[in-house]
C-alpha cells in the first residue's frame, strides 16, 4: 500500500511552525501594559483531524460578525478589530486587556474545500473548520500482483 498526497511526506507540524506569513499588528495604539510580552495575537490551537484542519483562536469579547476569515492562496487569514469597550475617561485603575486590530495567517498544508469552511464562536473562542479538498486527500493504491 502506498499513500500519496500532493506532497510525499509533508509534515504538518513543520508547515505550521515555520509560518512565514505570520504577523501581528495588535496593540497598534502602543498603550502601555496591553498585551506586553505577547508576540502573536490571537493565540491559536490547530488540530489535525481525519477530514482536515480545525483552527481555534482565543478571541474573547469580539463580535464574531466583525472577524474576517479568508482562505486564499493556500493560506488561512483571521483578522479583525478588538475593542474592549473601555471608556477612555479618567477613573481607569488598571487596563491590561489587549485592544486594537489583529491578524494572523497560517500556511495550509493542503488544499481546502472552500465551500465547506465553517466558523463558529463559543465562550470567546473562534473555531474555523477547514475540510481537506476531496481531490487532495491521500489515496490508497492497491498493488496488483502479476
Amino acid at each position: 500500500m502506498i499513500m500519496t498526497g500532493n506532497r510525499g511526506t509533508w509534515s504538518l507540524l513543520d508547515d505550521l511552525v515555520s509560518l512565514q506569513g505570520e504577523f501581528n499588528r495588535i496593540f497598534g495604539d502602543g498603550r502601555a501594559g496591553a498585551g506586553v510580552g505577547r508576540a502573536l495575537y490571537p493565540p491559536l490551537n490547530v488540530w489535525q483531524t481525519p477530514d482536515g484542519l480545525v483552527v481555534d483562536a482565543e478571541l474573547p469579547g469580539v463580535d464574531p460578525a466583525a472577524v474576517e476569515i479568508a482562505v486564499a492562496d493556500g493560506q488561512l487569514a483571521i483578522s479583525g478589530q478588538r475593542s474592549t469597550g473601555a471608556e477612555p475617561a479618567e477613573g481607569v485603575a488598571c487596563r491590561e486587556r489587549p485592544e486594537g486590530s489583529f491578524s494572523r495567517t497560517l500556511q495550509l498544508p493542503f488544499r481546502v474545500n472552500q465551500d465547506q469552511v465553517k466558523a463558529s464562536y463559543k465562550q470567546g473562542v473562534l473555531r474555523v473548520e477547514l475540510p481537506r479538498a476531496e481531490e487532495d486527500k491521500p489515496k490508497k493504491i492497491l498493488v496488483q500482483a502479476a
Binding site: P43, N45, W47, V54, V125
Partner: peptide, 16 residues
C-alpha cells in the same frame, strides 16, 4: 477554561 478537541483530532500547534 476548557479546550474542546474535535473528534479524532491531534493537536499540531498549541498556543493556549
Amino acid at each position: 477554561a476548557r479546550i474542546e478537541a474535535p473528534a479524532g483530532a491531534e493537536r499540531v500547534l498549541g498556543e493556549f
